[in-house]
Computed example of a mutant assay.
Amino acid sequence: MSRRMIFPLLLGLVGATVLVSLGVWQMQRLDWKLGVIAAIEARIDEAPVAIPDSPTEADDEYLAVRAEGRIGGPELHVLASTRAAGAGFRIIQALDTDDGRRILLDRGFVPEVQKDLSRDTGARIEVTGTLLWPDDRSDATPAPDLGRNIWFSRDIDAMSAALDTEPVLLVVTQSSAAPPPFPQPVTVNIRNDHLQYAITWFGLAAVWIGMTGYLLWRIKRRTD
């Protein structure tokens, strides 16, 4: 082997090793993320329990719970959409539970034309669902249009202040009340791009190896 080939070869080996290592790391992250998602989905599907006395996002998010009580008005309308119905709103109300608590209740979705229909405020209700701390609010999210009662995210702190409830949101998946609103399934919205990243790193490693091989071939031709 020519001495002129040693440095390009070493550079090629180091670069390929780094790129392959990054791809392997992303595959490990993928396995971890899939495990997290599977654990959350399993928790959502567990038998519902009573709402904890002091639920927290760290300990109780996605916990399947049950509650009974009376629906307290007024409603808050959160802009939303579904594939089947298009644009509409999530209906958020207070639930005065039988054990003396007052929490936020995401009762489900209504199409836009049903936004202002009269509903069963004050009625007794039994629900099962999931405790959730939504992350659908960002710095770009507009402030709620209080005049038209249109909210653009489920801001638990602001909504609990508006309805005088605990900062606890129960997303209804089953209800004793007839729809509408239509309860919506809780989905796990955790970003998982690790497979794409792994493919990118492995692809770059293949290109790096190919370029190194081509460079070594050029050097060898010149020295023969």
Rank of each mutant, 00 (worst) to 15 (best):
D116Y: 01
T212Y: 11
I91A: 14
D31L: 08
A64R: 06
A80P: 00
D136K: 11
W151Y: 13
L204Q: 07
L19V: 09
T97M: 01
D145K: 09
E166C: 04
T165I: 15
R154G: 04
D164T: 15
V24A: 01
I156A: 09
G12T: 05
L146G: 03
P185D: 00
S81I: 02
D120I: 06
L204C: 10
F109G: 05
L215D: 05
V127L: 01
Q196P: 05
T128N: 01
L9G: 11
T121M: 12
I91D: 14
D136F: 00
P111S: 10
T141K: 10
D135N: 08
A85M: 13
M1K: 08
L104W: 06
G147N: 09
E61C: 09
A84R: 14
Q26A: 06
A143M: 11
G12W: 08
L19K: 04
P134Q: 09
A205C: 07
I199H: 02
L79W: 06
R191D: 13
V186G: 05
A143W: 13
R3A: 15
H194V: 03
N192P: 13
L10F: 10
T173S: 01
K220L: 12
L104E: 08
G23P: 03
L63Q: 15
L204P: 05
T130V: 13
P8H: 10
Y62M: 10
S175R: 09
F202A: 08
R124E: 04
G12Q: 06
T97H: 05
D106W: 04
D53S: 07
V78D: 06
G69W: 00
L34N: 11
T128V: 01
V24N: 04
W133V: 03
A140H: 07
A178N: 12
L146K: 14
V14L: 11
Q93D: 07
V14T: 06
V186W: 07
T130E: 06
R66T: 11
V207Y: 10
G15K: 06
D136E: 06
F7H: 11
E166V: 00
R137I: 11
V65N: 07
G100L: 12
L9Y: 11
V14E: 03
N189L: 09
A85R: 14
S138T: 15
W133A: 05
T121F: 13
